[in-house]
Simulated scan of single mutants.
Amino acid sequence: MGIVSELNLREDVAKLTERIMNIESVSGNEKALADQVYETLRGLSHLEVHRDGDSIVARTNLGRAQRVVLAGHLDTVPLPHVAGARGTVPATVTDGVLYGRGATDMKGGVAVQLALAAELTGPRFDVTYIFYDHEEVAAEKSGLGRLARNSPQLLQADFAILLEPTNGTVEGGCNGTSRFLVRTTGTAAHSARAWMGENAIHKAAPILVRLASYEPATVDVEGLAYRESMNAVRISGGVAGNVIPDYCEVEVNYRFAPDKNLSDAEAAVRSLFEGFDVERTDGAEGARPGLDQPIAASLVQILGQEPKPKYGWTDVSRFSALGISAVNFGPGDALLAHTDDEHVSQQAIRDCLNTLRLWLTEAN
């Protein structure tokens, strides 16, 4: 016997968001929410529904000339540990503002997807709605990545929108990200006879000097200005309070514009730290803006706002890797994501729904 859904996809989308937020879904604990989404969508006769673990794909098949994807993740970061924090579960509402974990990242966007999936039986494009797990953790756990491996045909489209928070404007593409370890070595010795050793931590000083002197670029990519950054994010070394350290490593994070690929980014980092031992430990490609076709221009025209670049990495990169142009567009301020005061205006969620509804039906 199937699970009885608690979600009413035809009620006010802000209230729907609240209901979704009240189903706690910290990464690894998405099943309860995924069950609700799956059972609700299975009841819509105009959609074909597929489930892979805690990821759900629902698709119209109307024979339209183009297909678009609306995608969002079901998971959130862990709940706040601060007593009295409002960015938690269950959600609360004060003066038209919805507070709680996932308010901006990104259950408002998920509610918009669900509302559109229920309402639009004859959109001007075929639409694929994707709800996936494990976005907020290591990339190898990503539900969207798993779908791309197991069922790539379900993700194929002409254009994709990731409903991450963008304050209601289009943010094109995203910066890439990469992490490196820059290492130094020395000779261990008793700290009382320091001259007998060679201090690896001291030898790391030039690494920090080079980073402090580094001037990040702002790169124009198809009319959007992507600001890069390169920073030390961790430093470690030493074994005891009375031992000269023989090893030190500085972890460096490089956020690079989407005119570069991972190989370009690695070359830039190795050039900056020439003479040091450098190892790339992680990386994800960026994505170009995705605004160079009429289907994207029509969304921008409806909004009447200039698109912006996305500085952070998002899953538009995964769509880009599949050859699908993709943008970020969703309710809420990304700067509030993951905070103890996470919140979103109820009206911002309604406005996002109205914009996408108009875009998906304007020719009908």
Rank of each mutant, 00 (worst) to 15 (best):
I3K: 09
V4N: 11
S5N: 04
T17S: 11
E18M: 14
E18I: 12
R19L: 08
E24D: 08
S27D: 12
N29W: 10
E30Y: 01
L33Y: 03
V37M: 05
R42Y: 07
G43K: 14
L44E: 06
S45W: 05
R51P: 08
V57K: 06
V57N: 04
N61P: 02
R64D: 07
L70K: 00
D75N: 04
L79V: 10
V82H: 04
V82I: 14
T88W: 03
V89M: 03
P90A: 11
T92C: 03
G96D: 09
G96W: 00
V97G: 01
L98Y: 02
G102P: 06
G102M: 08
A103M: 07
K107M: 13
V110G: 04
P123L: 12
F125V: 02
D126R: 10
D126I: 14
D126P: 06
V127L: 06
V127M: 01
Y129F: 15
I130F: 07
I130V: 15
I130C: 07
Y132L: 13
Y132N: 13
H134F: 14
E135I: 12
E135F: 07
V137A: 13
A138M: 15
A138S: 15
S142D: 05
G143S: 00
R146C: 11
A148M: 09
A148C: 07
S151I: 04
Q153W: 14
Q153M: 15
L154F: 10
L154N: 02
L155S: 03
L155W: 01
D158A: 03
F159G: 00
A160D: 14
L163W: 05
P165E: 15
G168D: 13
G168K: 01
G173W: 07
C174L: 05
T177F: 12
L181Q: 06
L181A: 08
R183E: 15
T184M: 03
A188C: 00
A189F: 02
R193V: 15
W195C: 09
N199W: 11
H202G: 11
A205Y: 15
I207K: 05
E215H: 12
T218W: 03
V219D: 11
V221M: 01
V221S: 01
R227N: 13
E228F: 00
S229W: 02
A232R: 09
A232Y: 05
R234L: 14
S236H: 14
V239M: 12
A240M: 07
N242R: 00
V243I: 12
D246C: 03
Y247F: 14
V252I: 11
R255Q: 09
K260C: 13
L262Q: 03
L262N: 00
D264H: 05
V269I: 05
R270E: 09
S271G: 15
F273G: 07
V278M: 08
V278G: 09
D282Q: 04
G283I: 12
P289F: 04
I295S: 07
A297R: 13
V300E: 01
I302F: 06
Q305N: 14
E306A: 13
P307N: 03
P307E: 02
Y311G: 13
G312R: 11
G312V: 10
T314D: 08
S317M: 08
S317F: 10
R318E: 12
F319T: 03
A321K: 14
L322H: 06
G323N: 04
G323R: 10
I324M: 03
A326W: 06
N328Q: 06
L335F: 10
D340T: 09
E342T: 02
Q346R: 08
Q347I: 12
A348V: 09
W359V: 08
W359L: 10
T361C: 14
T361G: 12
